[in-house]
Structures are given as structure tokens and as C-alpha cells.
Design a protein around this nucleic acid. Structure first.
Lengths: 343, 343
DNA sequence: CAGCCGGATTGAAACCATTCATGGAGGAAC
DNA sequence: GTTCCTCCATGAATGGTTTCAATCCGGCTG
């Protein structure tokens, strides 16, 4: 009766096959598949559902994207997914996107302007519905997104890029509180391990460090700059240990660097926090398991990721340039010299 | 002369606009854009390139994907991108894919069968050109990919799923060598921290541990199972420390667990490697920076990622079910009790 | 000059899903 | 019995790109 034609079209099954099999028009199939704008009689719907199941029909996302002008995909550009901060971010962004049925296209810029540009271009060409940018080396490339009318959210980007919304923490305030904490332990010579500056602006964390010192009427301790990695931190640690006025406390602008610093200090046979106290920034899980556990400034990564995604694909997708700031929290552990039991 | 019509079509610029502007047909534009099968006269090509530049034309990936039946995208399913092993893998897979102009869609299953299924379905619907599966909780879902004719590569998957190619290391042999190394240090009671078993088969690492013990004529040490995380390792460490016959050496099936174990041991005031030696599996960077640095079995993640991607989109994409095994390497560091200077 | 050849260009048919404007059937109200 | 309305279902247009088959034009040979 209702098995009119062949039941195994060799190629991929399209909605036309389903329609034929179910004895209805393709429009009806469409309505059934996505509860479309028109209603379908229960009996018809059942027939269609049957056909879909039997034929193993799978809607073609490309066609859908073409017609709808939306790929239900968002892009993420980060410097390096093997850095725990960013890998956590990716995970959180993916979760938030998946929650809304969106897929996440991940790209790593590896600190290369060329790669970053290529990735941004590529994402634009793929008609992603939005991009989260956690690595912006070269702002002019952002116009690619603007041209393509693709909303973007900048993450922890110091200087506000005009026309783009952003999400982040107050880097300066977070750093200030951490350094203030070190000051509270009586340190007067507090070093700083920074990342290599990529943005035009001075990194907020450096400002916060400076602020805390000047608030306390202290002189600047030694500064060392290097990559946001364990190896970078290791090198930074060695240089700080060797510096003329060796600091008694170090603030690292990322947990990764702090981990490296810890190793440099250990290898030098110096004790943490006894001889040198350490505090850092990020609040990664790894910092909790280092030895000693790192006192660090926590960034609410999950909340930030959710906010970013929701700015892109939430109810008010197109909404212009919001600027959301999230609170940081100082996680006091052992590397700063507090007793093990948190006050 | 050659500015026939309006120059600012409001909507996105299509190849039709370009064609009109350049005074050629759309086919030519296509040939120019992707060095198509037909040749274009240099003069014409220049006109088209001009038009493209002036209009800011951007090819529509969805339309291209629809026509070509390929999205130039591959999918990756992993348990958890915040786990360093997998975040490194994601990065490597992304790199390899980007190399060929493919984008990577990242998905985390978080150990949930339901999520894994949803992701696999979703990737299939998106017509990805291939999927790398590093998390296979429920094999039957693989048919979704098979049905959709999407090639897939399994990563470190013990039991070979019929019809799928796979890439991985010899878990058993890697583990065996690490445990053998511990045996070489004179340990006779060697504990094991495993993951919770998800596959049908016994994890290769467990087999390797057993093998090494039986090779040496030793009795099995205590086994503890738990999640592949620092917290899981911490709990495992506590249980091993508390076990009736406390081991003098522990083999952990992942670096993450070893990191947790290290903390549990430290907190108990026991020394590593003095009182308890530790070795683990993965070769993550974090293991190099733990204290003491972990002796661990390195997996060539980058090479594996490249092999996986190339199996999906390399010259021989469709090629049936290869099974590539990569060599592991024991990275001897300090947690096993060797002297600091590597032999 | 007729006839050809070959390279450059074009028109149009796919690809698959969405959705609007129609059409048709059936029931209810007069 | 006629008219109108509601409810479902349909046909066809649309979206941007690729690519095949067909056309066109210039030049070359005989």
C-alpha cells in the first residue's frame, strides 16, 4: 500500500525520498522535521516519522545553513588549547554552545598573527553565527568579521575594540588584590612575571601589581617577561632568582608561569613560601595540585564562557557592544605563606 | 566604464554580484575563485579579482558544502578538553586539519553516553568529512557514522570496532615497560591506579602492569579505580596509602591521576620517590613540572593526531580500517627513584 | 574564402531544505 | 443547498555555488 517505490536509494537519503516514501510532499516532511510554521495532521506526521526512521533520513545541514543563512555554529579563536586556561575555556564554550544546539569550531592561533588572520577569515567564510575571540593579536583583522556581519565577543581584551562586545574580568583589580595579599605578609620586594605584551595597552595585571605596590608605598620589584607557559615561567623564575635584588615574593600573571617558577625555585633549593612567596592568576585546577598549592586569582571561566556564548546566540544576538565584567576571587592556598587552613 | 551597476549590494555579496560587476558570467567567477577545471584568460581573471576585492566578496561555505557534499570539516569527540592529554590532542588535530584547510568541530562527551550519542548524531548531520573518536562509550552509536558514510578513526580504543580504522599506542606494552622499570628499582609491591573501565575489554594498561609483575614473579599489588582526573588520583592515592599492604611503588594509568596521587602522598608526609615511587602514563607537560617530576610513558600525541587526520582526509580517505600503532617511550625522571641525571 | 580547431566564456541544471501563496476538502451555519 | 471558514497539504521559488554541455570567436589551414 504505502511502499510505493524502491526503499534503498543508494546515495544519501534526501527529504524527497522521504516524501515519496510517505506519499506526501516535501513541504510536509520539512514541517514534521522541524515543527515548522505549519501544522501537520497527526496521521500524516506518523507516516512521515515512519518513513524517516525506515529510510534513515538525516537532514543535510549544509542545505539548511544555506537556506537559513545560519550554520548553527560558533567559532572560537584562542592562542593555545594546550594551555589549561584556554582548554577549560574551550570546554565551557563548547558546553554552552551545545546547550543551544550550536557546534563549536576550535582554532588555535599559536601566537601567530598570520594564523589568527587565516582563522578569522576562514570562520567568516564558513558563516559561523558568532565568534569568541580570546586571542586578538592584530585588531584590524576584526573588520573581516564586521564586514561579514558576524557578531564577535572579545575575551579579556584590554583595550575595547569599537563595535565589539566583550567579556572578561578586571585584570588589574584581581592582580592588585593578590599583590596586596603578598604585601600583607610583609613583603617589600615583590617581583612580577608577565606575559610578553601583545596588545597596545599595558596588561591590566601589570597595572594592578603597580597599583598595589604604590598603594603600599613600595618600590617596584624586578619584572620579567616571557611566554605564558610552564617553560616560560621556569625561565622567568631563574632570572628572578638571579636578579640583583632578588624578590621575596613573586606575582605571576598566569598559573602556568607560576608552575614554572615553582620548579625554578625548587631546583635552586629555595623554599616556597618560606624564602619566596608566590601568587598567580587564573585559578586553574593545576594550581591546586602544585606543590605547594598556589594562591591564585580565580577567573570565573564557565560564567564568562556562558556570557560570551549567550551574547552571540542568546535572545539578543545582534545587540551592540556590551561590556561585561566578572568578579575575580583570590583563592588563598599555601604558596603565599598563609597557614594551610584558609583564614 | 566597468562600473556598470550599483556597487554596494546591501546583503552579503554573492558571486552573482561579482559577475555583474566584472562583466562576466558566474561560472568564470567560480573558476577564478577556486582555480576550477576551466582556464580563465589572464585579463578576465584580473577583472574578476578586482571585483572580488572591491566588493569584498566572500564565498559562501554552506552553498559550497551543499554542492560539493563536503563541509571541509572534521569532528572530534573527546571525553574532556580540560584534561591535558585531550587538550593537547585537540590542538594537534586542529593543527593537522587546518593544514589541509579543514576546520575542527570539537565536542566533549564528559563521560556521558547520552552526550556522546548526541554529538555523534550532530556531527553526522553536519556532514563532517570525518570524525576522530577518542571517547567511545557506546559502540553501537558508531553505526550512525557508518550509515552516513562518514569515515571515523578510533583513538586508543582497545577492542577493534569492525570497519573502523584506529590509531593508538600499545597501552599494555607501554605500561609493562614502566612497571618493569619500577621493578628494576627493587620494588616488589607495586600498586595500580586505573581509570574506571568503560570498554568491554580490560584496559591495556592494566594488562601491562599485570604482565610486568608476572614476568618478575611478583604478586599483584593493590588496585584502585577512579576517574582520570587529579581529584580522582588524589582519592586513589589516599586509598592506596591506607591499604593493608601499602605499596612501595605505584603505577598510575594517567598523569592526571599521578598528580593527584603525588599530592595525597605529600600530604601524608611520605616522600616520593624515597618511600613510594610513582610512574604514570601519558607524557603530558604537566608531569614534567610536578614535584618531583614524574616518570611517565610518553604517547606521541602529535604524530597520532596527524595520522588520524590523514586517515580521514588524506590521499586515501575512504581506505578501509587500517590499524596504526605508535611507539611509546618511557620518560625517566625523578618520581621513580632514578637519580636526577637521566641515565 | 570555406572549413576547422581550440581556447575562453556562458547558460543552466543540479545540490537539499525552507516557506509562501495556493488549492482542495470537509464541516458548520444560514 | 449554498456560502464561508478552517485545516492540511502542495507546488514552486529561493538560497549560493559548481560544473557540464553548448556557444562563440579568433585565427589557421588548405
Amino acid at each position: 500500500m504505502t511502499t510505493p517505490t524502491l526503499q534503498a536509494p543508494r546515495g544519501p537519503v534526501t527529504r524527497k525520498d522521504v516524501a515519496r516514501y510517505a506519499g506526501v510532499s516535501t513541504a510536509v516532511v520539512s514541517y514534521v522535521v522541524n515543527g515548522g510554521p505549519k501544522k501537520v495532521a497527526p496521521a500524516t506526521e506518523a507516516k512521515v516519522q515512519d518513513a524517516i526512521r525506515v529510510l534513515g533520513y538525516r537532514p543535510n545541514a549544509a542545505a539548511r545553513a544555506l537556506k537559513l543563512g545560519s550554520s548553527e555554529t560558533i567559532g572560537l579563536v584562542i592562542p593555545d588549547n594546550s594551555n589549561p586556561f584556554f582548554s577549560l575555556l574551550s570546554h565551557a564554550v563548547e558546553d554552552a554552545a551545545a546547550e543551544c544546539g550550536y557546534a563549536l569550531v576550535l582554532t588555535n592561533s599559536d601566537g601567530s598573527v598570520a594564523k589568527e588572520r587565516r582563522h578569522i577569515r576562514n570562520l567568516a567564510a564558513r558563516q559561523v553565527d558568532g565568534v569568541v575571540l580570546a586571542s586578538v593579536l592584530f585588531e584590524p583583522d576584526l573588520v573581516e568579521l564586521d564586514d561579514a556581519d558576524i557578531p564577535a565577543v572579545l575575551l579579556n581584551h584590554g583595550d575595547a575594540a569599537p563595535g565589539f562586545s566583550s567579556v572578561g574580568v578586571d585584570l588589574a583589580e584581581g592582580a592588585r588584590i593578590a599583590v596586596e595579599h603578598l604585601v600583607g605578609h610583609g613583603h617589600t620586594n615583590i617581583g612580577l612575571a608577565m606575559g610578553t605584551n601583545t596588545a597596545n595597552d599595558v596588561d591590566g595585571r601589570e597595572k594592578g601589581w603597580l597599583q598595589a605596590l604604590s598603594d603600599a608605598g613600595l618600590l617596584e620589584g624586578p619584572i620579567v617577561r616571557g611566554p605564558f607557559s610552564r617553560a616560560g615561567g621556569y625561565a622567568a623564575g631563574q632570572r628572578l632568582l638571579a636578579s640583583a635584588n632578588r624578590p621575596t615574593a613573586i606575582f605571576a600573571s598566569s598559573d602556568m608561569q607560576a608552575i614554572g617558577i615553582l620548579r625554578a625555585i625548587h631546583e635552586a633549593g629555595v623554599s616556597v613560601p618560606g624564602d619566596i612567596a608566590v601568587a598567580s592568576f587564573d585559578g586553574s585546577v593545576e594550581a591546586e595540585y602544585s606543590w605547594p598549592a598556589l594562591t591564585t586569582v580565580e577567573q570565573p571561566v564557565k560564567a564568562m564562557a556562558e556570557a560570551a556564548v549567550s551574547a552571540l546566540i542568546g535572545a539578543d544576538r545582534g545587540k551592540p557592544a556590551g561590556h561585561q565584567l566578572f568578579p575575580t576571587k583570590l583563592l588563598v592556598r599555601q604558596s603565599c605563606g598563609c597557614s594551610r587552613t584558609v583564614p
